[in-house]
Design a protein around this nucleic acid. Structure first.
Lengths: 110, 110
DNA sequence: TTTATATTTTGACTAATGTTGAAATATGGA
DNA sequence: TCCATATTTCAACATTAGTCAAAATATAAA
C-alpha cells in the first residue's frame, strides 16, 4: 500500500461516525446493512450518513450493492488488512519485535 | 482502547506529513530524531512541523525529550500497538479468520 | 554578556470537513 | 398510475485543519 492510500483510509476512519459505521458493518458480517439501519443505529441524519458512507466507499473500506429500494453496505476486509499491513510495517521496522502478532492480532486460533 | 482515543490516533496519522514523520521516527529507532532533522528530511517549514508534532504528541504516538538545544522526538510503539489492536478487533470480529496474523503482522519470527 | 542556532508560538489566511433542511432520484406496492 | 419509503444531492453555514511569515523562547557557544 502506498502512503497516499494509507492516508485516505486513515482519514476515512478518523471520524467517530465513520468508525462506528465501520464497526457496525464488521459486526453485521458479509450480509451488510442497509443505509437506513445504520442511520437508525447511530442516530445520525440520513444526509450526514450518506456523506460519511461516500468517504468510506472512496477509501475502499466498504462496498455497496442495491437491493430493491435499499442500498446495502458491507465492510471490505481486504482494505482493512492492507491498512493494518501498512501500519504494522511502519511500526515493526521489518521485525515482529516491536509489534508482536499477539499485540496486534491476539493469539492465533488455528 | 476507547473509540475516542482511536479516532484521535487515526486523525494524527491521517495526514501525509505526520505519517511521514512517524515513519521516520520508527526508522530512527529508540534514539529518535531532532525536530530539525525531521524538518530537513521532509522539507517542511519548522513552524508547520511543530504543529504536526504537537498533534502526534497529543495522540500519544510520539514522545519528546529535551537534549541541549535540540528536542528529540521518538516513536511510541505502545500507542501504535494499541491502535493496531483496536483496529484488528474491529476487523477480525473476535476471530483471526478475517484478519490473519500473517495479513496484519507478517509471519511470526520466534 | 552577546550572538547564533533550535524550536515553539502567534495571528492571518485559505481550504477542507461536517451538519442541516429541503429538494431530487429511485424503487416497491396499492 | 399514484403514493409511500429509501437514499442521495444540493446549498448554506459553522467549524476545524493546514500553511506561512514573523515574533518569542530557550539553549549553546564565542
Amino acid at each position: 500500500m502506498e502512503i497516499n492510500s494509507a492516508v485516505v483510509a486513515l482519514a476515512a476512519l478518523a471520524q467517530e461516525t465513520r468508525l462506528s459505521v465501520y464497526r457496525m458493518l464488521v459486526e453485521a458480517g458479509p450480509d451488510g446493512l442497509a443505509a437506513g439501519r445504520l442511520a437508525d443505529g447511530l442516530s445520525v441524519a440520513s444526509a450526514s450518513l450518506s456523506f460519511h458512507l461516500k468517504e468510506l466507499l472512496h477509501a475502499g473500506l466498504v462496498r455497496s450493492r442495491q437491493d430493491g429500494r435499499y442500498v446495502i453496505y458491507s465492510a471490505n476486509y481486504e482494505a482493512m488488512n492492507a491498512l493494518l499491513g501498512y501500519l504494522t510495517e511502519n511500526c515493526c521496522r521489518g521485525t515482529t519485535a516491536a509489534c508482536s502478532p499477539i499485540a496486534c492480532c491476539g493469539p492465533a486460533k488455528p
